[in-house]
Design a binder for these strands. Structure first.
Lengths: 128, 128, 128, 128
DNA sequence: GTGGTCTAGACCACG
DNA sequence: GTGGTCTAGACCACC
């Protein structure tokens, strides 16, 4: 599990770390119970500040994606995170509108949607 | 077309204005050629700074969603905006992961996707 | 609303700020809609770092006690925060045990409990 | 008397051990003169570091809850521990404020308080 | 001016 | 060694 951070885009680094770990869990690249690097280790590995990594971890923790064992490590937590259908729908409305306005048909749209879901299953070889 | 702005969430106001206008176009609530309020008018109406509205308009213009008529008005442009399948896929990956991690099945996910696309067609009576 | 921070005790500063604001709201010293000082202002006023105040504010925000208006200020939010009877009971068990082991009677215990609740109503003149 | 430790919460492990023993004494599950396991034994049993258990025992000893017999064992001490009404009140203020802000009435609050005190008397069948 | 983000470096509680 | 906390100073997005 190697993180790919882009320091030039506007997405905050802690957000990028967070997102990639969430994607990693969803795709199975990170399995439940697996140990994550320590904040310091990941900070050195990625070349960012400890507090930045810490912020990402705190974020993930508050969502229930990871949990920190007081005896030392941080691991992927198994518990389902909380997201409602309504919240997801809200996140999808703008992409759907963009797709539509760019001339995408309903089928093309659904095709991408299927890919996005499946994509988190086995083949993540072509995407970050 | 009334904008509903929330000043407490993390989404920037100019982004909210932009998004709602895009959604308005996609849903047909705003039709091609329709005149938008002036920057100043919309600023007063929504209670935000003129610069904020201006930024949203600039954004929409750069995407080709609206165009400024030399004689003064700003109208909805008809041209197709530019969005690639890859870009849409990128925007969908995180929502897809969230949905999956919250225990949503493939079918439930697609159901929401269909809704998101259809939702921008006729019945916007329950949404902003 | 003046904060009294103690830099010698083990309770983190951001926690002290958080707690005193919560107590302030409960006691009515801070009313709904009232404007809080900016992070910078409070940082200067109390002599701590901006990020420390920021952390306390983030904490309060996540609990729904305050909300930040993107146009500038941070205000006391009216919405009820979420705490269950079970959670409160959990927090009370240890104090109750301590009270009991120090020889306090049931009546004395309840007397203190009543005081603790009432105390957040009008007369905060003798407590921090 | 089995300890239930949670390594993922923010409460330090030594604190959890301490608290549960205090609760055990208050509830009568641990009676005066009863022998506690040795530091080493409890460390193995719970899977934590010896130093951690030791710290909890030192803490309990300093409060007068337990005492070490010269011949080797550690037993529950009978003497009253020291806690003032003011100290208890201080510990109750934040929980009281939380309860209040979550919409709890004075009666509901007192109900929980009574439960917390009574709970440490006979029926600990449902609590740790 | 406001909050959000990041850095480099430090100290401490915990285990 | 691990994470939690704090600092001083900085840059940036937003309004």
């Amino acid at each position: 599990m190697l993180l790919q951070l882009d320091f030039t885009i506007e997405t905050p680094i802690y957000r990028q770390i967070h997102d990639q770990i969430v994607l990693g869990i969803a795709s199975g690249k990170l399995s439940v119970g697996e140990k994550l690097p320590t904040v310091r280790a990941l900070a050195i590995e990625t070349g960012v500040n400890v507090m930045t990594v810490n912020k990402a971890y705190q974020f993930l923790k508050s969502e229930g994606h990871i949990s920190t064992d007081r005896r030392g490590g941080t691991v992927i937590a198994g518990g389902k995170s909380v997201t409602t259908a309504d919240k997801v729908l809200g996140e999808l409305r703008l992409p759907a509108a963009s797709a539509k306005l760019s001339g995408m048909s309903s089928d093309e749209w659904l095709d991408i949607c299927i890919k996005a879901y499946k994509c988190e299953e086995e083949n993540n070889n072509d995407a970050t």
